[in-house]
Amino acid sequence: MKTNLSINGKRYQIDAPEEMPLLWLIRDVVGMTGTKFGCGVGQCGACSILVDGTLIKSCSMPFSFGIGKEITTIEGTTANLQILRESWQECNVPQCGYCQSGQLIAATFLLENNANPTDEDIDNAMSGNICRCGTYTRIRKAIHMAAAIKNQG
């Protein structure tokens, strides 16, 4: 039986088991590969997405959780995500780039809820996302920069 799922404002008709994690549904069934697999147990944040604006580790949330809700992935756009992308580029954050989808989504969630995060706020909001290349100091700088741009505008 096909079920409706809304991702980045677009509707998809999906036939998949309800217990299938959203990560694999998005990657292997819908075919959008920007959301990444890193650990499968909610430890690394590479699979971060927003579901009705809430930050979710999609490897650990079933398909059924997303039904009837609006999903935002790295392929989507929100005002904060766009500002963050620009500050990410300005700070030359990525190395291998693999975890950055999840980092950007987690940072988007932070900015949605906290227009002017302190270092401690960033520590708390971003410590669920692992970057093995170690770009943390740049991520911190880019979030501060995005907040500053946003507050100016």
């Binding site: 075919g31 959008m32 590969t33 920007g34 392929e75 990410w88 580029q89 030359n92 780039g97 950055q100």
Partner: peptide
Amino acid sequence: KSVDLKDFTHGTAKYGMDIR
């Protein structure tokens, strides 16, 4: 700046796992 920044920040860089 990295030549790949746009792809890295839009989820469009193709890693091995993204091959379809």
